[in-house]
């Protein structure tokens, strides 16, 4: 199980990487390698050129400002999970992290790689969507911002055009009144989710929900916002019954895929459970976690 032949370059700058991508049509970008390398070894991918972006220092930068958190695309999972300032800036990142792979994958795998790979069961794309993140994409013609909702387009498909590179992810500042919850069901710890939910709930001083984000992942070809369910929460003081209602709304109309690990029926049935549990955790309503 050996990779097919390819040529390799490790540019030191984003411009260098973009030039290589422009020059070689079937080039692939090598970030953490935790998805691309297995594909190469299994000969499921055979690019003529590999553009290794690990030598571009700018891509590993992290900045936390009043405007929010900015993660370079090459920031590795383990750094997100072990740097308390990052999880402090966007608590959903910290909640999702324990579900992401295993130690030796976390040390190499990158958030940008996960987003660009666009596995519909992956955690980071769901977190980005639930956090209103914006993807900074750079191409030969300059940079553009892509909101998370427009970034994942389907299974292994994103808004990144040929010749473009995802360079950073920007998370807006996290309001003090925002609660977050994350729940997923996977075959084993660290596996991709069969189905999961990432949620945020903004609470007013009187406990009324002023805003909410409910994202389901693993339930369709890409992570999806469930706006009807979000609307159901808005203006209400959430309790167990309301959470059940919202969860049920969140799963309505989804058309999940079937695969080896979970049938569409399974995902349809468990999706509302994940939403309910994520909301229950976010709102510290343990009784809402239990089956009714």
């Amino acid at each position: 199980m050996k990779a097919p032949p390819f040529a390799y370059a490790a540019p030191a700058s984003i411009e260098g990487a973009l030039a290589l991508l422009a020059a070689h049509e079937d080039a692939k970008v090598l970030a953490g390698g935790q998805s691309l390398m297995p594909a190469l070894n299994l000969r499921l991918a055979a690019p003529s050129v590999l553009v290794d972006i690990n030598a571009i220092p700018e891509l590993s930068e992290v900045s936390i400002t009043p405007a929010g958190l900015r993660l370079g695309a090459l920031v590795r999972h383990s750094r997100i999970g072990t740097n308390s300032a990052i999880a402090g800036a966007v608590p959903l990142l910290g909640l999702a992290y324990p579900h992401i792979a295993h130690g030796p994958v976390r040390t190499r795998g990158t958030i940008g790689g996960s987003l660009a790979h666009a596995d519909p069961s992956a955690e980071w794309p769901a977190v980005c969507l639930a956090s209103d993140a914006v993807m900074e994409v750079r191409g030969p013609g300059g940079g553009r911002d892509v909101p998370a909702e427009e970034f994942s387009l389907g299974i292994f498909t994103t808004a990144i055009e040929p010749g473009e590179l995802l360079v950073a992810i920007r998370f807006p500042a996290w309001p003090a009144s925002r609660r977050a919850g994350f729940a997923e069901v996977a075959r084993r710890d660290g596996d991709f989710a069969m189905v999961g939910a990432a949620v945020t709930v903004d609470l007013g001083a009187d406990g009324t929900c002023t805003d909410a984000r409910i994202v389901l992942f693993g339930a369709s070809s890409r992570p999806v916002r469930r706006r009807e369910a979000e609307a159901r929460l808005r203006g209400q003081v959430p309790g167990a019954a309301l959470l059940r209602e919202a969860a049920s709304l969140a799963a309505q109309g989804i058309d999940p895929p079937s695969d080896l690990h979970a049938s569409a029926e399974y995902r349809r049935r468990v999706a509302p459970v994940m939403v309910r549990r994520a909301l229950a955790d976010a709102l510290s309503l343990p009784e809402a976690r239990l089956a009714s």
Binding site: R187, S248, A262, S263, E265, Y266, R269
Partner: peptide, 16 residues
């Protein structure tokens, strides 16, 4: 008896 197979055996509760 993975989760998918087991859940198929468990009767679904009607939505509240």
């Amino acid at each position: 008896l993975g989760p998918d197979r087991l859940l198929r055996l468990i009767p679904e509760k009607p939505a509240p």
